[in-house]
Amino acid sequence: MTTTTDTRQHSGTPTAGHVHEHSPRMAFAELVPDFYRAMLRLETAAAKDLDPTLHHLVKIRASQINRCAFCIDMHSKDALAEGETVERIVQLSAWEESRHFYTERELAALALTEAVTVLTDGFVPDAVYEEAARHFEETELARLLAGIIAINAWNRIGVTTRMVAGHYTPRTAS
């Protein structure tokens, strides 16, 4: 098997030896613009009144589970731009062993994120849902669930269409 190398590093600085970046499979947003706009509205509705820090953690963790490199890149950069720490983002993949980095509310949200994202048992365990319900009032819990569902949908778009990580630039506050 022959591999080509790309001289670009994640930061845009040339570095020899990196594996060549893959191409996306399709320009999904251009091919189904009405669906894409609906997804953007879904995302906006899900984020309404949800703590942005918590929402970033949920989006990053679900994206890690779903192995969506584009979404991991995007949501990590957005979180950093909004003041999240590198340490908390790095520890997300091992949050159960790094509980001391997160609040009880964040831990409950992360557990719910994993349960909703990985439905291998076919359901969200009662204990996980009840713990989340203990930390979030009902409307906020519904918003959290909406956010988890939305990022899972985005992840499926990103992974299936092979969106390319590394080129996203976070929006800046104006």
Rank of each mutant, 00 (worst) to 15 (best):
G17I: 09
T103G: 11
A79F: 02
E30K: 15
K59G: 07
H55A: 13
M39S: 11
E106H: 00
G17D: 10
G12H: 11
V19K: 14
R143W: 01
A45R: 12
M39T: 12
D126K: 12
F28H: 09
K77M: 08
L110Q: 06
T44L: 09
R41D: 15
R37I: 04
E21T: 15
E97Y: 13
D49W: 01
T5A: 10
T15D: 06
S174K: 13
V32L: 14
C71K: 09
R61N: 13
R41N: 14
F28G: 05
A133Y: 00
I89W: 13
E140H: 10
R99V: 12
L144K: 05
L40S: 07
T5E: 14
G122T: 07
E84V: 12
N66I: 04
L80I: 10
R99D: 05
S174F: 04
R134Y: 00
P170T: 06
A79V: 10
L144R: 02
E138C: 01
T44E: 15
G83Y: 04
M163T: 04
V159S: 02
T4G: 03
E104C: 00
I72S: 03
R171V: 08
L40Y: 04
L145A: 12
H18Y: 15
L92W: 06
K59M: 09
H10C: 07
E137T: 13
R8M: 10
R105W: 00
E138A: 15
H135W: 06
Y36M: 08
E30W: 03
I151H: 00
R171K: 12
R143V: 01
H167A: 12
I65S: 03
T160W: 00
T3Q: 07
P24I: 00
L40A: 11
